[in-house]
Design a binder for these strands. Structure first.
Lengths: 145, 145
DNA sequence: CAGAATCCAATAGGATACTG
DNA sequence: CAGTATCCTATTGGATTCTG
């Protein structure tokens, strides 16, 4: 049998359901406004994850990040970094040289986010073929019908 | 000492860096178009996670989901479900009754995503106080300066 | 160098009305 | 019930120019 693995695939589901029940036991709980939302919204925006991944390797200066992610505009990079700084995930340090130099690095909190993020990335890598296949199948059927 | 835990906080970072180096070894690798992006984009959009969480509990009919997530519009719910179906994360089953009834449930692939998702949710719950605090501090300093 | 400011285009998403 | 279709607004994000 194939069920010798300690990591029961249904365990996650059960854990999640239990957690949701706890949430729902709170009076007037609003799922849409739950704390988790703001985190996922942040990770979901176009550049946050890419920036986090870049900073995971080492501290970077502004233009270093820009070189690592060439297709981000300065405007968006600034905004992404500000949001991350605001959330305490990234620390910004200014060196009053001339011309100025600014260094960005992950905070301890930011580094702690890498663990769950890696899980997600691993899942995405492992299952990307399945998703691509599913999309192809779906699109084919759609166009036929 | 506090380092008896097997889960070294830096392990995730190292694993990620290693993975990135593998990515970069591919010729002409484009970080912005990496497979992971499409997954994170999906999770990041406004309703996907909420829908996944709802379906994690049990199969739902269209209006059941709508009741569980009251502030989603039918338009967005339809679209979110279509996207999830297209990615092979959700299965749609029509019962040709009158009036029609449609059931949505997570596929095996969809359920497998719950594990990394729970990790992320757990992180968000555990660290939400820190984030809130960081935001407050940041906003205060901003307005003063 | 590291942004801030401004302008503009594309997309996301809400409200409402209609349909098999 | 389970959507579609249409319209309209708000947000996102790119391009460009300017500055300490």
């Amino acid at each position: 049998m194939t069920r010798l693995r300690t990591n029961n695939p249904d365990a996650a589901r059960k854990a999640l359901v239990k957690r949701i029940q706890q949430w729902n036991s709170v009076t007037d709980f609003d799922l849409a406004r739950c704390p988790v939302r703001s985190i996922l919204d942040r990770l979901g925006d176009k550049w946050t994850t890419l920036t986090m991944i870049t900073l995971a390797q080492k501290a970077h200066r502004f233009s270093e990040i820009h070189r690592a992610i060439p297709d981000i505009s300065k405007r968006m990079l600034t905004q992404t970094l500000r949001d991350l700084e605001r959330d305490g995930l990234v620390a910004r340090r200014v060196f009053p040289t001339k011309p100025p130099s600014v260094e960005y690095r992950l905070t301890e909190l930011g580094e702690s986010l890498l663990a769950p993020l890696v899980k997600l990335i691993t899942w995405a890598e492992n299952n990307q073929p399945k998703i691509t296949k599913a999309r192809k199948k779906f699109d084919t059927n759609e166009s036929v019908v």
